[in-house]
Amino acid sequence: MAGLPIAQRVFQLLNGNIVFNPIIKEGTKVKVGEVLATLDGPLDGLLTGERVALNLAMRLSGIATMTRQYTEIIADLPTQLVDTRKTTPGLRILEKYAIQVGGAKNHRMGLDDGVMIKDNHIKAAGGIQGAIQSIRKTIPYPLTIEVETTTFDEVKEALKYGADIIMLDNMNLELMKESVTYIRRENKQIKIEASGNITLDNLRQVALTGVDYISSSAPITRSTWLDLSMRID
């Protein structure tokens, strides 16, 4: 369950006389038919807020549920699951909140949280070297630079020119293992992220390659809404 405080806020904004009493805590696994919260207040406020509150809680609970499924698979490993910026327009903060409720970590909230050099940036800059060197001249010191790589040569170039984080994007397991071994041997301080086509079936195998993070948009983009209802007594 995720989103009860959000649902509560919906009703509070509509009518301050509505009393919202959560029965369970955020992040709790729930069963079909279980009562999650009770509300007491004017009928017009309850019915006006019903669909907005339910939609948000249903959406966030679906995200938290799928996130929990992912995190439980690698719970005994040091690798952390993180989300992406593939979020519903206008709902990023809430959806990333649901990711945390499900037990994963947040990646960047926006473009200003850190620098990620992707394939289009590399092409525009004429290569990884040019992209990193031009960015280093202008970004504030605390910001990190992450480079998206798809080949072993790109991994070596990103490492050579000072990337803080190296993303292994859409690599097969063998290439990923080779890249992790190389990066660890050359610089143990570099953080490694795996991304691209991460599923429940291959998540653990990816984590066992030794990466620090696995990023996936699936819990947000592919999760199913939890079925919730509000009943007037």
Rank of each mutant, 00 (worst) to 15 (best):
L143T: 05
G90Y: 08
L143P: 04
M230A: 00
M116L: 15
K118C: 04
T151H: 08
L46N: 06
L173A: 06
L159P: 09
M109Y: 14
V211Q: 02
T209M: 03
K29D: 03
T87R: 08
A7L: 11
G127Q: 10
V30F: 10
Y70E: 05
T150V: 09
Q129H: 15
I198Q: 02
L14T: 09
I145N: 02
D164P: 01
L13R: 15
E72C: 11
P22E: 08
N55S: 12
P78S: 09
V147Q: 03
E193H: 13
A2W: 02
G62T: 07
K86Y: 00
T221A: 07
T87Y: 07
L91H: 05
R85A: 07
T149Y: 00
R222C: 00
T151A: 05
L60S: 02
R9W: 00
N15R: 03
S223A: 13
G41C: 05
I190R: 06
D227K: 12
G127I: 12
N55H: 10
K156Y: 11
I18G: 06
K191C: 06
L173I: 12
N172W: 08
D201L: 09
D44W: 15
K177I: 05
L94S: 12
A2Q: 03
F11N: 06
T79H: 06
P142E: 02
L4K: 09
L54T: 07
G102P: 06
M230N: 00
G210L: 04
T181Q: 14
E95A: 04
L159W: 09
A75F: 12
Q100M: 10
H121R: 15
N21S: 10
G102H: 01
L208Y: 07
A194N: 01
E178A: 12
R184V: 08
V206E: 02
K118A: 04
E193D: 12
L4V: 11
G16C: 04
I145H: 02
I74T: 05
R51K: 15
L14A: 10
T88L: 14
D233P: 06
P5A: 03
T144Q: 10
I183D: 11
T38A: 09
I99F: 03
T48W: 07
A124N: 09
L94I: 11
Q129W: 10
G130M: 15
V32C: 05
A218Y: 02
Q189F: 09
E193C: 12
I117A: 07
T71P: 01
A131S: 15
I73G: 01
L4T: 09
S134I: 07
T38R: 13
I183M: 11
A163R: 04
M176R: 13
R184L: 08
I99Q: 03
E178L: 13
E34G: 05
T181M: 13
P5F: 04
I198H: 01
K31C: 11
A64I: 09
D40S: 14
S223I: 13
A75Q: 14
K191D: 04
K96M: 12
S216T: 15
D112C: 02
I165L: 15
L111F: 06
E154W: 00
K118D: 02
K137L: 15
A104F: 01
M1P: 01
T71E: 02
L91D: 05
V35K: 15
M167R: 03
G103M: 06
D201I: 10
